[in-house]
């Protein structure tokens, strides 16, 4: 993209005439992997030269249609589209982001879980009498709903520093700020604790401190499976369908090639529950899918 030298707006009319004259011709390059790279040049509204590089793979897809429909496809464009070439014109047609739409009877319920509306509070009230105890923080909620699910290990493993400090109730109430619970030395509550020491509590080596890196760093990898030897024609939906049999799947990630859109051959499946993940791992390892034998194992924590 090369911006042209500044010019007076009054000269605009003259400039219009010399457009399209000094544009390099469009280029087409055949790539080794069967795709084609098309490089085109044009002027945009501000009279700047724009280079467009597109990498396209053509896939022939045959479909039998009504002859009248086929005839209409050959019609000549008219009106404002008269000058458009074959195929969708980029100024009128674009492709939106992928939307997952699968009808479900529980649609309403699912949506409510996500948005924290008053009903969530009502649910909490109900659970108070039921003596639900969280394995992570001893709070009165299900373990799966624990606010510290991603940052702390279950009590048995992590020596439960918070509870020892007598602050288990605070944690159960869902207070924000994971660092608040376990100040080292249990001294003054308000003193600053470096992120690396937060959550470590008095017990040495219990649990890693809070890490940077946003949600990706905090993801619970305990119930994540790594699936390899996946067919390159695979879709995330198919994987989800296959693994949903074993329990609630919270995330499906299928690595895809940026240019061709084909799968790279591996995927990650996160379950809400580790038990389900164990089951899925045992059952799906060696499963035949699209002419390939899947290999399923627990994902290793990123270093």
């Amino acid at each position: 993209m090369a911006a042209q030298a500044k010019h007076d707006w009054a000269d605009d009319d003259d400039l219009d005439e010399l457009t399209t004259a000094d544009l390099p011709p469009p280029q087409k390059i055949q790539n080794k992997d069967g795709s084609t790279t098309i490089i085109e040049y044009r002027y945009n509204d501000q009279n700047q030269k724009v280079k467009t590089t597109r990498r396209i793979r053509y896939i022939t897809h045959r479909e039998v249609v009504n002859p009248r429909v086929a005839e209409r496809k050959a019609w000549v464009k008219f009106g404002q589209s008269a000058k458009d070439g074959a195929g969708p014109a980029p100024d009128t047609t674009s492709v939106g982001e992928n939307i997952i739409f699968r009808p479900s009877i529980n649609w309403r319920k699912d949506a409510k879980d996500e948005s924290k509306d008053p009903n969530a509070q009502a649910m909490k009230d109900k659970l108070k009498d039921k003596k639900v105890k969280c394995r992570i923080c001893n709070g009165e909620h299900f373990t799966a709903r624990c606010p510290y699910k991603d940052t702390m290990a279950p009590i048995g493993e992590a020596a439960g520093a918070d509870v020892a400090a007598g602050m288990g109730d605070d944690a159960g109430a869902g207070g924000a700020g994971p660092g608040g619970a376990g100040a080292p030395g249990a001294g003054k509550k308000g003193s600053y604790v470096p992120p690396a020491l937060r959550g470590a509590g008095g017990a040495a080596g219990a649990g890693a401190g809070e890490r940077m890196g946003g949600k990706y760093g905090e993801r619970d990898d305990l119930a994540t499976l790594r699936v390899t030897n996946v067919s390159e024609m695979a879709e995330e939906n198919e994987l989800r369908d296959m693994f949903e049999r074993f329990g609630r799947v919270t995330r499906v990630f299928l690595a895809k090639d940026r240019d061709t859109g084909l799968a790279k051959g591996f995927a990650f499946i996160s379950f809400a529950d580790r038990g389900d993940a164990v089951k899925a791992c045992a059952k799906m390892d060696g499963f035949g899918f699209r002419h390939l034998i899947l290999r399923v194992e627990f994902a290793k924590k990123a270093a």
Binding site: W75, K77, G79, P88
Partner: peptide, 27 residues
């Protein structure tokens, strides 16, 4: 047949589109 889509708006032209790929046939 579901292959053409017509759209009207508060501006002053009607658009005809091919429904399968979003190509505009004309106005």
């Amino acid at each position: 047949e579901g292959d053409l889509l017509f759209s009207t708006a508060k501006d002053q032209h009607i658009c005809a589109w091919f429904a399968h790929n979003g190509e505009r046939l004309g106005t």
